[in-house]
Amino acid sequence: MTGGRITAPLAVFILGSSAGCGGPYSTLDPAGPAASAAAFLWWGMFGLFTLVLVFVVGLWLYAMRRDPDPAGGQDVGRVHRRLLVGGGLVLPMASILVLLAFGIPAGHMMLPLPPAEGEALRIDVRAHQWYWETHYPGTGVRLVDEVHMPAGVPVNVHLTSEDVIHSFWVPRLAGKLDAIPGHENVLRLRAYSPGIYRGQCAEFCGVGHAHMQFTVHVYTPEDFEAWLEAAQHDD
C-alpha cells in the first residue's frame, strides 16, 4: 500500500520529465510573441550563465589545486591584475551589455504601444478576492474567470482591482502585471493561434489565492466576432 503511494508520484514524475517543459502554465511552451521572447531570453541566459558558472568554479578549483610558483615576483602580480580586471570588470560588464542588447528590444516589444495598423482590442479585467471579472467595453458583456479574445491581433487588457493587489498572468501568452486598487495597468496580450490557455493570480492575495485561476479562450478573429455577437444577445 505504502509502496504504491511512493511509486505513483515517482511514475508521474518520470512521465512529467519525459514530457519536457509542457504543462498548461509553462512559460517554456510559449504560445504568443511576448512569452516566446521571454523563453528565448531564458534559454540564452541559461546557456551563457552555465558557461560562466562552470568557468568560475573551474578556475577556483584550479587555483586551489595549483602549486604556487616558487619564483613568484612580477609574474604573480600580472596574473592577479589579469584576474581582477578580466574577471571582476570585463566579464560582468560584457555580460551586462550582451543582456541589455537583447533584453531592451524584447521589453520594448512587450509594451502596449499603439500597433502599426488598426487599434488594439480593449478588454477590462477587475480582480476581486478571489475571482476575475471581465468586461468588453461598449458591449455590456460581463464574464467571470474567463477571457475570450481573437488570435493574431493585439489585445490590451486594462487591469484594476476592487480590493487587494492581484496579478494577472497567462504564462503561455505573456508576462504578468499587477491589478492594483486605484490604479489601471495595461497588459498587452497576443496569441499565435486559437486554443484554450490557462491563467492564474500570481500575487499573494489571501486565503483563496491558490484557487484564483481563469481561462483564456482564443478564437480566430471571425469566430471571436461571432462569439461576441452571441454573448451580447445572451444578456
Binding site: 560588464m93 551586462i96 531592451i104 521589453g107 520594448h108
Partner: peptide, 18 residues
C-alpha cells in the same frame, strides 16, 4: 562614472512614460 553611463544607457532606446 561608469555606473552613471551604463544606467543612463536605456534613455537612448525607450520611450519615457509607458
Amino acid at each position: 562614472a561608469a555606473a552613471v553611463l551604463l544606467v543612463g544607457l536605456p534613455v537612448f532606446a525607450l520611450p519615457p512614460c509607458i
